[in-house]
């Protein structure tokens, strides 16, 4: 287990920890992409390539007692929030021992009672659920916590986004809404998604504070996301963070993203945040190349071990499956279809 921020002491430790989560997430995503291409994964694979800096910056600034509702490109944040690699691998491979037991897959994973919420596919829908967790904890007298909900710029067009951000504002909940504006919602460019000049301006209408950041800039993400989370934690109400970046992959691995123009890929927006972070660590002498190489090989070993383990584990058995959607077993309709 890597250290969390609260345990870090030495200069650059937070950055080192965050970088290692970014690296692990990238390598884990690469592994999922390979398994997908090899036909070992059922359904889709969704990568966070290009979004690791933002995502890791969220995860390392959260405590175990906080609330986190990641979206599809948040492998780094998930790991940093404490998700074991094996949970991710088991969910992608459909192991019956994983947190979702083969009932749900890929990015739809979490452990709700640990404040780690498993997304449904409908965008914006998790925000009000985070509100609810924060609301309940406030009723219980728990203070000093925050909840982060992640979304892309596409989700800001949903009614759920509006309702939930307004709700959080009215209730002054410690919600941090992190929008990764990666320029494309599947294939839809931002010009067809919203007409305001800056998504962060939306915060004004809701009466909440906003923060803008270059999502490709590792140290800026760390600073901005850390500040937003600290503001919410200190009781300043909901915070909207808008990070600008470029999705360095398809929507999913089934998508070649041919609609992204080469000029955009070659622009500053298209630079790889992992490389930016690596350069930053080297320049600041927070780590050297040898150290990074060790981290890389350690991460690869952990990922390979997790994949090997999950592949040996039993798949869900339809004959063992309890085909019941209700927790109240006495209310199930047990009649078999004839």
């Amino acid at each position: 287990m890597l250290q969390t921020v609260s345990e870090s002491r030495t200069v650059g430790e937070t950055q080192r920890v965050a970088y290692r989560f970014m690296l692990r997430a990238r390598l884990l995503d690469d592994k999922f992409a390979s398994l997908y291409r090899a036909g070992k994964i059922h359904g889709g694979v969704f990568l966070g390539r290009g979004q690791e800096a933002l995502s890791a910056a969220i995860g390392v600034h959260l405590n175990k007692t906080d609330v986190f509702a990641p979206l599809i490109r948040d492998a780094a944040g998930r790991l940093a929030f404490g998700e074991p690699i094996i949970d991710a691998v088991r969910t992608y491979l459909g192991s019956s021992l994983g947190p979702m037991r083969g009932r749900d897959g890929n990015v739809h994973r979490g452990r709700p009672q640990e404040g780690y919420l498993p997304m449904i596919s409908h965008l914006g829908a998790m925000i009000s659920v985070v509100n609810g967790v924060l609301f309940a904890r406030r009723m219980k007298g728990i203070t000093g916590i925050v909840g982060v909900a992640c979304l892309g710029e596409g989700a800001t067009s949903t009614g759920s986004f509006h309702e939930a951000l307004n709700q959080a504002a009215v209730e002054k909940l410690p919600l941090v809404l992190v929008v990764a504006n990666n320029q494309f919602a599947y294939s839809t460019p931002t010009t067809s998604q919203f007409a305001c000049s800056d998504l962060a301006n939306k915060a004004i209408g809701y009466g909440v504070e906003s923060h803008s950041v270059d999502g490709t800039d590792f140290s800026a993400c760390m600073e901005t996301v850390g500040a937003a989370i600290a503001r919410a934690r200190a009781g300043h109400g909901p915070q909207l963070v808008v990070a600008t970046l470029l999705r360095l992959c398809g929507h999913g691995e089934h998508d070649d993203a041919s609609y992204i123009a080469p000029e955009q890929k070659n622009s500053k927006l298209g630079r790889d945040c992992l490389k930016v972070a690596e350069d930053f660590l080297l320049k600041k002498e927070f780590a050297d190349a040898a150290q990074i190489a060790v981290w890389r090989s350690e991460a690869i070993r952990e990922i390979d071990e997790a994949v090997a383990q999950a592949q040996r584990e039993p798949a869900p058995d339809p004959y063992e499956e309890k085909w019941s959607a209700l927790s109240s077993e006495h209310l199930n309709e047990l009649r078999e279809e004839s």
Binding site: I127, S128, N131, G132, V133, L134, K140, E163, A164, N166
Partner: peptide, 16 residues
């Protein structure tokens, strides 16, 4: 905000 009302309810239910 009926959508957010039920979302909030689910979040509180997760918290018991």
């Amino acid at each position: 905000s009926e959508d957010a009302m039920i979302g909030l309810a689910v979040g509180t239910a997760i918290e018991g």
